[in-house]
Design a protein around this nucleic acid. Sequence first.
DNA 1: AAAACGGGGGA
DNA 2: TCCCCAGTTTT
Length: 344
Amino acid sequence: MPSAAALLAWYDRNRRRLPWRAEPGAAADPYRVWLAEIMLQQTTVAAVIPYYERFLTLFPNLAALAAAEEGAVLAAWAGLGYYARARNLHACARAVAAAGGFPRDAAGLRALPGIGAYTAAAVAAIAFGQPVVPVDGNVARVVARLAAIEAPLPAAQGAIVAAAEAFGTAPEARARPGDFAQALFDLGATICTPTAPACALCPLRAGCAASRRGIAADLPRKAPKPERPLRHGVHFWLVDRQGQVLLRRRPPRGLLGGMTELPGTPWRAQPWNDAEWRAHAPMPAPWRAAGEVRHGFTHFELRLALFAADVPDIAADGFLRPRAELAAEALPSVMRKCVAVIGG
DNA sequence: AAAACGGGGGA
DNA sequence: TCCCCAGTTTT
């Protein structure tokens, strides 16, 4: 069994300073811990920091976020991805505000929108000092190596969680649950990295089965991923005589749910021919080819053809924005790419 | 159990 | 290019 004491001693000297973290010895703010954890789901620290700072300015506390319109929250989230997180964040803020505060235990937190097993444990440990171990990608990698778990993910997840909980029962870990969790995060982020782990610098090396066997860099093993299919779409850049561009809102749920887009066709496996995409144009217009955009989503690759036209007046569903203000519009990244190609 | 759900940074 | 990231929800 690796040494929790050694891990915490390493953490006390090497901890990362992050905007949502309390200073050593200070109490963590549950609102900030929760907000950061939601943003950090499947998202790197570097990507989160500017969004976190902006969010805290717009919504400095739970009451402010609960009082905001969902559209304002989605707009502040634009570009960060996984937009269901923003909708759940808002719903969660209202539920917690109505209840008078966050539940202090993992089971209570787990019942809230957008909070799964990982986030419940992270908030319980970091904000409320509960003796639980959140297992994210970092912790899973560290623990799979410590215990030399060779079964591939996701089948190995149960064994990894069990090993993490066993590590967390050490008295030093139970005395500082939040620091123990964050120590595992920091170790995974800076020493026990996915490729080429710096085992020579690791405080847990003596207790690491994978390091001993020389297979640390090979763990955790992962099941092969299905290949991503290709999809095609066409989007339209329609400008009126006042220089206003037609935009519209996507359906409230599903892919990019509730976000703003240029009007376009559905995205499908087969490319669109001329007659097909014209049937989806917001109105008849002298369309001219205006470029192409490629964008990768988690489960498919997207190729968009862009067509532009100028008309005196726009008569179509959607809303208008001055072309010059589009850079400031809250757009998902794929639509930001379209604007950059056409209007850039 | 499997699929849906974004986007950016690093190897 | 592929992989990974402080995962959750829906089917």
